[in-house]
Amino acid sequence: MDLVWAVLLGLLFCGYFMVDGFDIGTGLLLRRVGRTEGERRALLTAIGPFFLGNEVWLVAVGGVLAGAFPLVEDRAQGGMYPLVVVGLLAWVLRDVSVWFRSRRASLGWRAGWDRMLVVTSAAFAAFWGLFTGAALAGLPPAGTTAGAARLAGPYPLLWAVALVALFAAHGAVFLAARLSGDLVKRAEATAVRLLRPAAGLLALAVSAGAVLVLPKRWEVLLPAVLIGGLGAAALWAASAAVRRGRHGRALTLTSLAAASPVAVLLIRLAWDLPDAAADDATLSTLGGFALVALPLLAAAQAWMWWAFRRRVDAGTVVFF
């Protein structure tokens, strides 16, 4: 039972990095790929229909933690208190930037929120990097701020840079796949410029982790290095796919790469998870609901993707 819930948690968390990853990336690149007001609106429209449906993956991660792993919730959040607070603030401000910016016609208002979106998306990506880097050394005990001390080192910072690059590259590939006209060319160029450095940074972060912080046990090191390496390779391969105009394939590759840091993290934490799981009675009750709900949720998300599969063009409905 623990295992089923750990896998579910892993899927939701990996899924979150895949889907919100390109929202974060689009936010990061908003002012670079989008030069004019109309172009920036097109970029926001590209993520628009998915924006709400993407971030709920993280809300679901929080829910599964609360329900099935109450003690991990405590340690992952309470143990890294200042970091989580800053991450939450970045998330909140990122969201309202998207919601508020087009609500007034004033160009000053819009430019202000655009800048806010770029900054908070970068901060949010960096937060995930710092969190990953710090948590790879193991979750700090609950009720302490030990996790905060770990953030200062160069290793979490390396992860922060790696994830900013990774999400930006993922976002650029998503934009190349979703937009049309000149914007595709610009998104492609940005993606090509970002993908290989991102691959290098990811490979560096994972291998530094293997040397510096991961426990020296082959059952952790081997899968962690393998998955991290595959993630980096996927980014590298995506670069070639973008050059050949194969946007769908490139997006699949960068999505897998975006999920890889979470996979590495979960492999590391798997050793702590079973002790922190809720009681079997709770897990099986939740499991009954999940059995019914999860296929429906998957169907709802699939429907969303199918309904908005067309590229963004002049006739696309805008909102954000």
Binding site: V56, A60, G63, F289
Partner: peptide, 28 residues
């Protein structure tokens, strides 16, 4: 946590997940 977390988990999975996904689709 064993008890209190269960309805919270179900809120995110069964209710909010659906609500947000479909609201995005309604808007666009």
């Amino acid at each position: 946590g064993n008890v209190f977390g269960a309805p919270l988990a179900l809120e995110t999975l069964i209710a909010f997940f659906v609500e947000a996904t479909f609201l995005g689709m309604w808007i666009f």
